[in-house]
Design a protein around this nucleic acid. Structure first.
Length: 650
RNA sequence: GCCGAAGUAGCUCAGCUGGUAGAGCAACGCUCUCGUAAAGCGUAGGUCGUCGGUUCGAAUCCGAUCUUCGGCUCCA
């Protein structure tokens, strides 16, 4: 058998050679670090005899697939440990996830919680020290069913029902056997660090009518140092938690008397939000958008027409009755915008019409789903709807993509782009098939012409049209789906929207829905965590504080404050009778970017001693020079220079 | 909504097996007038999330409820 290695070289091995043997022929170190092997795009266990050659890659921890095998194997060890400690448990499923793995377990009547985790963890430690091999074997479906009938495990039987007879594989390590497709790592000894993280309830097969199992989350690593780094990162994430930093920095609050899931923007947060809004507003106006404002409630008819009311009834606040008519707290801005479009006779010369609004919408999210600013019941979308002709669609899509990329580049956040297209199941989608094909074609062309890296997800389109999703990555390497650009053929029909073409006939426009930030609340929560509260200057609620050395210099401080305020810098003086060390500490903990210290020297020379937060004293500046420097930093939207923190898992 | 956990001063937390709440920071007052991450002294501040029960007596035990957190489910 001939194998082709990633570097292009070829080697010949006898049939039945294992990935481990091949790795060893390259280097002992590779053999030690190897976790699985990929041959011709299929992943195999390292000790599985190979029966055909092809493109080969030896996978180590750095390969996503190998990492998943590692965590998958860890899940088996978790199950083995649990079964050893609680012999009567029933096992559900135990897959790897983005950061670690879990196993869903039915503990019967026993309550198992976080306090039981150390015990299970100890057992796992014991099992990995045994360095048990993961051994693969196959059973026929009836043998497999027999096995689990004997074991009396309803969940595995349920899983088996969905499997084809023939190649039902099992893995055995130590005293534990599990139904599993694999692949797995060679032996349990590869796992050098284990941490069980938490427990949670999870429905069998994600179905809330079936039984709720206990899910145990954990993570493992091939090196102890990696676990330490991971735990540090968790600590870091906790420190950055917007639910803590947000209220602390005066960004927002949630008050039970006002209602859960209904955040209120505090003065500092409002400054930040308005800065985001004007940033986007100006960019949109430059790109030919028109801004509109629509009310927070709308007649039920509006949402019956759009189809939102019947379809999403469960996630809306109940309608209210006014003068014998039903009204709904608006869950979407689009129906209002469609009516504005329809308010005038539109000519093809008017198109595209781009209506933008920072529109606040209300949705009934389940109580358990609410989360700080990132999951709320009332939020503001940076919404816009573009009404255009089919011929204009591609350019408009490009414009939307460009705007979204521009917005995220301002924060130096890497963006992944996903094109969500339809699948073959016509029933799932509205609008004519050929329009869809054309739109998907144009989305793809737009993406290609803009030289985008993208991934296509078939079947992920929305009901009314294909879409582009933007997934950004924050400073901790976490991914968030934010911006979206969606093509819509259904609403123009439902609202009977038209324009008069050059042929003097009525035509249907096509609509693009788009929102770069998505929701200002959610985006702000991400910004808080991305910057750990150290916002870039242009977003900082307070940009500078003037600290006089003693109260003899209060007058100078006040004069400086006025001059800075006049050019639009958000600045305050700290005239308290505190020592300057205390005032500086106070400014640092409040994450104020600039501390301007003034005293005798500064009074004499009309200078200012500048301290930058997290950096310390950066020296003395001529005051009017400093004004132009800080002004320029605001105008240029300069980012903090230390904000590139990379997670170990990214 | 479901499973699990938690709620003590503005914040961070202490309060053992029931005997009527305590610290640091913050706030306020006075003193200090100070050069780059916490000056000193003093004052005030809590019906221990809420409601109910057990008890001579509940922050502490029991029940219910609300809110928050970790997940599940859902997400136009």
């Amino acid at each position: 058998m001939i194998f082709t290695f990633p570097d292009g070289s070829e080697k010949t091995f006898a049939t039945g050679v294992t990935g481990y043997e091949i790795a060893k022929s390259i280097s002992g170190r590779l053999a030690r670090e190897a976790l699985s092997v990929t041959v011709a795009d299929t992943i195999y266990d390292l000790h599985r005899p190979l029966t055909s050659g092809g493109r080969i890659a030896i996978n180590t921890w750095d390969d996503e697939d190998a990492k998943y095998a590692f965590w998958h194997s860890s899940a088996h060890i978790l199950a083995e440990a649990v079964e050893a400690l609680y012999p009567d448990v029933k096992l559900g499923i135990g897959p790897p996830v983005e950061q670690g793995f879990y196993y869903d377990i039915d503990f019967g009547d026993r309550q198992v919680g976080n306090e039981d985790l150390p015990k299970i963890e100890d057992k796992m430690q014991e099992l990995v020290r045994q360095k048990n091999r993961f051994e693969r074997f196959e059973l026929s479906k009836s043998e497999a069913i027999g096995y689990y009938k004997k074991k009396n495990d309803p969940y595995k039987l349920d899983l088996l029902e969905g499997l084809e007879d023939g190649t039902i594989s099992f893995y055995k390590q130590g005293n534990f056997t599990d139904l599993c497709r694999g692949p797995h790592i060679p032996d349990t000894g590869r796992i050098k660090a284990i941490k069980l993280l938490n427990t949670a309830g999870a429905y069998w097969r994600g179905d809330n009518t079936s039984k709720q199992l206990t899910r145990i989350y954990g993570i493992t690593f091939p090196k102890k140092s990696m676990l330490d780094a991971f735990l540090n990162q968790m600590e870091e994430a906790k420190k950055r938690d917007h639910k803590k930093l947000g209220p602390q920095l005066g960004i927002y609050m949630i008050d039970r008397m006002v209602g859960s899931g209904l955040p209120m923007w505090l003065p500092n947060g409002t400054i930040l939000r308005r800065a985001l809004e004007s940033f986007l507003r100006e960019e949109q106006l430059r790109r030919g958008y028109q801004e509109v404002i629509t009310p927070h409630i709308g007649n039920l008819e509006l949402y019956k027409t759009s189809g939102h009311y019947p379809y999403y009834q469960d996630s809306q606040f109940a309608p209210m009755e006014v003068d014998d008519e039903g009204y709904l707290l608006k869950p979407m801005n689009c129906p209002h915008h469609h009516r504005i479009y329809d308010h005038e006779m539109r000519s093809y010369r008017d198109l595209p019409v781009r209506l933008a609004e920072f529109g606040t919408v209300y949705r009934y999210e389940q109580s358990g789903e609410l989360n700080g600013l990132s999951r709320v019941r009332g939020f503001t979308q940076d919404d816009a709807h573009i009404y255009c002709t089919n011929d204009q669609l591609k350019d408009e899509i490009k414009n939307c993509i460009d705007l979204t990329r521009y917005v995220f580049s301002t924060f130096n956040m890497p963006v992944d782009i996903r094109l969500s297209f339809r699948d073959e199941n016509d029933e799932k989608y509205g609008g004519e098939r050929e329009l869809w094909d054309r739109a998907q074609q144009e989305i793809r062309e737009a993406a290609d012409e803009m030289d985008l890296d993208y991934k296509i997800d078939k079947g992920e389109a929305s009901f009314y049209g294909p879409k582009i999703d933007f997934v950004i990555q924050d400073a901790l390497g976490r991914k968030w789906q934010l911006g979206t650009v969606q093509v819509d053929y259904v609403m123009p029909e439902r609202f009977d929207l038209t324009y008069i073409g050059s042929d003097n006939q009525k035509h249907r426009p096509v609509i693009i829905h788009r929102a770069p930030f998505g929701s200002l609340e959610r985006f702000t929560s991400i910004l808080i965590e991305h910057f750990a509260g150290y916002f870039p200057l242009w977003l900082s609620p307070q940009q500078a504080v003037i600290i006089p050395v003693s109260d003899q210099f209060n007058e100078l401080a006040e004069s400086y404050r006025q001059q800075l305020s006049e050019v639009g810098i958000r600045v305050k003086t700290d005239l308290r009778s505190e020592q300057i060390g205390a005032k500086i500490r106070n400014a640092e903990t409040n994450k104020i970017p600039f501390m301007l210290i003034v005293g005798e020297k500064e009074l004499e020379n009309q200078t200012v001693s500048v301290r930058k937060h997290k950096k310390g004293d950066i020296g003395s500046f001529n005051f009017s020079k400093f004004i132009s420097i800080i002004k320029k930093e605001v105008d240029d939207k300069v980012l903090p220079d230390d904000k590139q923190v990379n997670g170990i898992l990214s």
